[in-house]
């Protein structure tokens, strides 16, 4: 004849009733699963903002400002640096890498281009090592 283990060992076994806790826990789990939207990771660009009037006031300075115009040329979105037109952001980055970074760079976004294409110019300037990147909205 075999007696129960508890009595056999002489110890008390504590049995917790976990049903309510599991109910609440599952409710929480379902709530978070339903309400959660897994958003894509975001970062940011932080250019200085200037208007055309403000940036024109600095034209009397000793240095020639380095300006990238983002505009439509022949129906194509284009980056214009001096007299050079580029349609690829990689080309722009390569050109910017050869410029002195201490002078900073102005990015001017004009009519017809998209936000994505213009922001890529700011990113290219940052990647080329420019700390001072100023965005100027064109009229």
């Amino acid at each position: 004849m075999r007696f129960s283990m508890r009595q056999h060992r002489g110890g008390n076994r504590l049995i917790m009733n976990m049903t309510s806790m599991i109910d609440v826990t599952f409710l929480l789990l379902v709530y978070f699963m339903v309400s959660t939207v897994l958003a894509s990771p975001e970062d940011r660009l932080t250019p200085t903002i200037r208007t055309q009037d403000e940036s024109a006031s600095g034209s009397n300075a000793d240095f020639q400002p380095q300006i990238v115009d983002v505009l439509m040329v022949g129906g194509k979105p284009t980056y214009r640096l001096g007299q050079i037109d580029m349609t690829s952001v990689a080309d722009l980055k390569a050109r910017l890498s050869g410029l002195p970074v201490e002078l900073g760079v102005f990015i001017r976004g004009g009519e017809g281009v998209s936000v994505g294409f213009t922001m890529a110019a700011i990113q290219a300037a940052r990647d080329a090592g420019f700390d001072q990147v100023t965005y100027v909205p064109l009229d």
């Binding site: 894509s40 940011r44 932080t46 250019p47 922001m119 700011i122 990113q123």
Partner: peptide, 17 residues
């Protein structure tokens, strides 16, 4: 322009990594 005229000189532009 609205940011600039209101006195906000710098803004964060969100990007998706």
């Amino acid at each position: 322009r609205a940011l600039n005229e209101s006195g906000v000189s710098s803004a964060r532009i969100a990007t998706e990594v």
